[in-house]
Design a protein around this nucleic acid. Structure first.
Lengths: 239, 239
DNA sequence: TAGATTGTTAATCGATTAACAATC
DNA sequence: TAGATTGTTAATCGATTAACAATC
């Protein structure tokens, strides 16, 4: 990662900083220290400084980070200023939930329409956004300059829908279907993998229940241990 | 991570292997190679072998992995055999969606009841699961031997609900609220951070749009670059 | 100035990958 | 046996952390 980019993990932490800052009282000229942020978010203090230094120069020695400036820089860096226009495909339970959830606006996302293949749904609307025929997807994306596609269709339909999005010029896709999809160069497919989270929970419980067992399955060693035992970082335990 | 545990990232990939295997025709004695799995999931071949070797000995040189055995071992390792009993707290849009989504059963999760504080909801039911008064949460968890709590409440309410879960003896919590929560030792709080995924998408679009800009903000170097440019691993592009 | 706090350079740690050994 | 494929050990790569330098 020498090239002057930003590490993927840092990038993923940035919205967390931003949403924490948004909960703070927005007083004129107020500042906050890296230590305070770190403790609130369960991260390392140095990590916070390094992450923030990547995207902002709102940090002042002896003072801390100017909250307003830092928020501005984070929003700018993440591209939340220019609202991203999105469509959602698959108006099932999850699709409906995401459509109805208002919070995405805070992250620059603007869902302008939904698509489905069920005629019972086509022509209806959810919170003012029309549900359209999936057939019309590529043309709609092109005409409406859609930037993000959200896939909440069954696994079996996901690749086909992705292809239609790509055909419509969409270059960023948020995939909730539990499959790996294939897209051309330049198109980012980000998979939201709920099963991964569940795996961590399930394994943690299994370890806690029968700490001794695990013979054939555990490699060598012995001590049952879940990955983030070390307190700070990722998984989040008490610190 | 010397101690004989399993790396967190490997653990997170395991359900992906499992769900891919489940899509395969389940023929008696059928086998599949690491190369085939890797290519289907967009992972490295060695990584697949290493991951699978951690949890199974279904791999046979020259043959590949016996599909049925491998699935059994994955399910066993992840603890999907013993169904985990869960409650969901916060019957808003997202909560409703997760309640109605049937697919979690495949991952050993069994949501037995939901909780809310709105009297309009209390007493109703979603797909046969009762919506109960949040006041009753700790006692219910204890009596019903609940293992997992799913938090789909607003950020401001999340810590209080977590405390109630802990009081009820729950040791694994899936947190959809956009906040960091604090829990005692031994309680795993896994945060599902949708904003992180959105950040990756948004940043990718911003880079694609104006590849040159980014002066004040980008560290040194120049070439705009998204973390997973390298094709295989995590983010998933075409390979 | 002295003290507090940020920013950066070097060391550590963990995960991935490459090269090779083992085996059906 | 020879060839294919898994499993493992060593090398590489990237991210985190510790130690220190810079600065208001």
């Amino acid at each position: 990662m020498e090239t002057g980019g930003i590490s993927k993990l840092t990038l993923q932490r940035l919205p967390t900083y931003l949403s924490y800052l948004r909960t703070l009282p927005q007083e004129e000229g107020a500042a906050i220290s890296a230590a305070a942020i770190a403790s609130a978010l369960g991260l390392g203090e140095v990590q916070v400084r390094k992450d923030l230094a990547t995207v902002s120069d709102a940090g002042k020695p002896k003072v801390g980070y100017l909250i307003a400036d830092l928020m501005r820089d984070l929003e700018h860096f993440l591209g939340y200023g220019t609202r991203n226009r999105a469509v959602l495909i698959g108006v099932g339970n999850l699709g409906l939930a995401l459509l109805s959830y208002g919070g995405f606006a805070d992250y620059g996302l603007n869902i302008v329409a939904a698509f489905d293949n069920k005629s019972a749904l086509i022509g209806s609307a959810v919170d003012g956004r029309p549900v359209l025929d999936i057939q019309a997807l590529p043309a709609f994306c092109q005409k409406e300059k859609i930037q993000i596609g959200i896939l909440t269709v069954p696994a079996s339909a996901a690749q086909g829908c992705l292809n239609a999005l790509v055909e419509g010029g969409v270059r960023a896709v948020w995939n909730f279907a539990p499959v790996h999809l294939t897209a051309p160069e330049g198109v980012l497919v980000q998979r939201e993998n709920m099963a991964s989270s569940l795996a961590l929970l399930s394994y943690h419980l299994k370890q806690a229940e029968r700490p001794a067992e695990n013979g054939s399955v555990q490699p060598r060693g012995a001590r049952p241990r879940i990955a983030d035992e070390k307190t700070k970082n990722g998984g989040s335990r008490h610190g």
